[in-house]
Simulated assay, not measured.
Amino acid sequence: MPGRRLEWMSWPEIQEAGVQPGSTVVWPFGAVEQHGPHLPVCTDACFAEVVLDAVMARIKPNRPIWRLPLQMIGFSPEHEAFPGTLSLSAELILNMVEQVGNQLSRSGFERLILFNAHGGQISLLQVAARQLRARRPSLGVLPCFLWSGPEGISSLLPEPERYEGLHAGLAETSLMLYLQANQVGNIKQWDGVRDCPTPPLDPPNGWSLEGKVPNAWLTSDISATGVIGDSRQANALLGEQLFNLLVDGWLARFESLLDSSWPPRRIS
């Protein structure tokens, strides 16, 4: 879709796009990090790219929304014990978001959506967004996470996978089986977080891996395979259902944003 991608546009076309009321740019973020012994290291990047492409394809051509190229390498220090993981520093990503956001704002764009598919950089991109917004008040900055927002996702996942399948588990493996089945290895032999040389220690009472009282865990603390969850029941049908919910959900949110006047004008 060259017409939706800024990198395929000339500077006069970008100038014209930026001054349109409600002009919006989406920047997809992924990661290059281990996803267990059965998924490729580009898994998060693949999800961000494919879901965003599907959403953009369904938006009417006259809508003022465009996208940037995928930022494939992200912030993944929790996975650095596993070969193949590439991670940028937090400082570099903060600086990168600020610089790109500043330049988009100077081109007249009113909104920047950080469309992130990697759970390990949710909080970092929220900080980057708040910092950018403070320095560019006229630019609405919306950091979002692929799996948070669209309704119905959790209802497709059984317990305990719904809350314990944090990485390369049922949801991610099923989605990859639907999108790129030839890139998925033998999932039947892996038992997720239980496949460790010694049983992992549970977090202290009152603490959790994620949630209200999280801790800064490393994947190697709790998994020998890199999987946190259980991928054994993954299937392409579930992946298709997840994909449709993700696309429908983000399409509705993008349309809602385009219909709005966000960001609000500053109170003088």
Score class of each variant (00 low, 15 high):
residue 202 D to T: 15
residue 120 G to K: 01
residue 149 G to N: 02
residue 139 L to R: 08
residue 105 S to Y: 06
residue 115 F to N: 02
residue 119 G to H: 02
residue 148 S to K: 14
residue 75 F to C: 02
residue 86 L to F: 13
residue 85 T to H: 06
residue 139 L to W: 09
residue 141 V to M: 10
residue 180 Q to G: 07
residue 118 H to R: 07
residue 99 Q to C: 12
residue 131 Q to L: 10
residue 156 L to P: 06
residue 184 V to Q: 07
residue 149 G to R: 06
residue 146 L to H: 03
residue 180 Q to F: 08
residue 74 G to A: 13
residue 121 Q to N: 06
residue 202 D to R: 15
residue 117 A to L: 10
residue 135 R to N: 12
residue 128 A to P: 08
residue 200 P to Y: 13
residue 172 E to I: 03
residue 82 F to H: 03
residue 203 P to N: 00
residue 92 L to D: 14
residue 115 F to A: 08
residue 146 L to C: 10
residue 87 S to G: 02
residue 186 N to D: 15
residue 174 S to A: 05
residue 201 L to C: 11
residue 94 L to G: 07
residue 181 A to P: 03
residue 125 L to Y: 01
residue 196 C to T: 14
residue 88 L to K: 04
residue 186 N to Q: 15
residue 104 L to W: 03
residue 125 L to S: 01
residue 135 R to F: 11
residue 125 L to I: 00
residue 105 S to N: 05
residue 190 W to K: 05
residue 158 P to D: 02
residue 170 L to W: 08
residue 137 P to F: 00
residue 86 L to R: 06
residue 191 D to K: 15
residue 195 D to K: 02
residue 161 E to F: 10
residue 165 G to Q: 00
residue 102 N to A: 14
residue 115 F to S: 02
residue 110 E to K: 15
residue 78 E to S: 10
residue 102 N to D: 13
residue 98 E to W: 09
residue 80 E to M: 15
residue 103 Q to M: 05
residue 148 S to C: 03
residue 79 H to E: 05
residue 172 E to L: 05
residue 104 L to P: 11
residue 133 R to Y: 12
residue 142 L to D: 07
residue 91 E to Q: 13
residue 126 Q to S: 12
residue 100 V to E: 11
residue 176 M to C: 12
residue 174 S to G: 07
residue 203 P to H: 04
residue 84 G to S: 02
residue 111 R to E: 08
residue 180 Q to A: 10
